[in-house]
């Protein structure tokens, strides 16, 4: 079916048809997300085991995190999921202007998330709560001294999980910038828009991971106020 290949814009030579190409892209992204799920899964497993081992340490550790900031970030990400979904919708409608607008909004929300995250991290560094040797030097009562070792375990899990998540946000921002550039050029049409759709899957996945991280990390000790 070589005669197709030369005509259709956006169709790679080794695919027979546009449908095949789109299907390949979509299945590819779903499989990639499965991989991502297992990647985060390792950390979720570590979280489960250490929380079981050190329930009080996790309670104390969770008190160190700011629920308002985490909540704000949760809100920002949920909103960005909406704008991304609308972006995908308008790419399928072939509405270039609205597509660019919603992609830009998603990008800005993603960046806002990272800015909030930055201040949260900075606060931890300022209090010497980053668990690495050389940095780790918390105040004697914040958290209470007898929990220091276990809080440190909590905090490395916190940094590993949210750090990995933030890394995915940064990659997502890069993808969005590329999409915005292509969308402005007019690459996406009613017929050819699978890159937007596939990137949308990725963005939603990163959001969903956060939806799990927020309660597990920030809200674990929410029902118990203060330390012992």
């Amino acid at each position: 079916m070589a005669e197709h290949a030369t005509h259709v814009p956006g169709l790679a030579h080794h695919f027979v048809s546009m449908e095949q190409q789109k299907e390949a892209g979509t299945i590819g992204m779903w499989i990639f997300l499965l991989t991502e799920l297992m990647f985060f899964g390792g950390l979720f497993l570590a979280y489960a085991i250490f929380r079981y081992k050190y329930p009080d340490g996790f309670l104390q550790g969770s008190h160190l995190l700011s629920v308002p900031l985490g909540g704000l970030n949760t809100f920002i990400l949920i909103l960005s999921s909406l704008t991304m979904a609308l972006g995908v919708y308008y790419s399928q409608m072939g509405d270039r202007k609205k597509l660019v607008a919603f992609l830009t909004m998603t990008l800005l929300l993603g960046l806002a998330f990272l800015v909030v995250k930055f201040f949260e991290y900075k606060e931890k560094f300022d209090h010497h709560l980053f668990p690495a040797i050389g940095f780790w030097n918390p105040a004697a009562d914040h958290p209470p001294e007898q929990y220091h070792q276990h809080v440190r375990v909590f905090l490395w899990i916190y940094f590993a999980m949210t750090g990995l998540h933030a890394l995915h946000m940064i990659v997502g921002a890069g993808i969005l910038i590329t999409l915005i550039y292509l969308a402005r050029k007019g690459t996406f049409t009613k017929e050819y828009n699978s890159p937007v759709e596939i990137s949308g899957l990725y963005w939603h996945f990163v959001d969903i991971v956060w939806i799990f991280l927020f309660p597990l990390l920030y809200l674990t000790g929410f029902h118990v106020s203060g330390g012992h």
Partner: peptide, 25 residues
């Protein structure tokens, strides 16, 4: 390959982190 490899990836990463930062993993 898809389901298993990411787990070993995160595991050796955690190992490298523990070695570098001496955190309790």
């Amino acid at each position: 390959q898809i389901l298993g490899t990411p787990v070993v990836a995160i595991t050796v990463l955690a190992l490298a982190l523990e070695r570098t930062f001496q955190i309790g993993i």
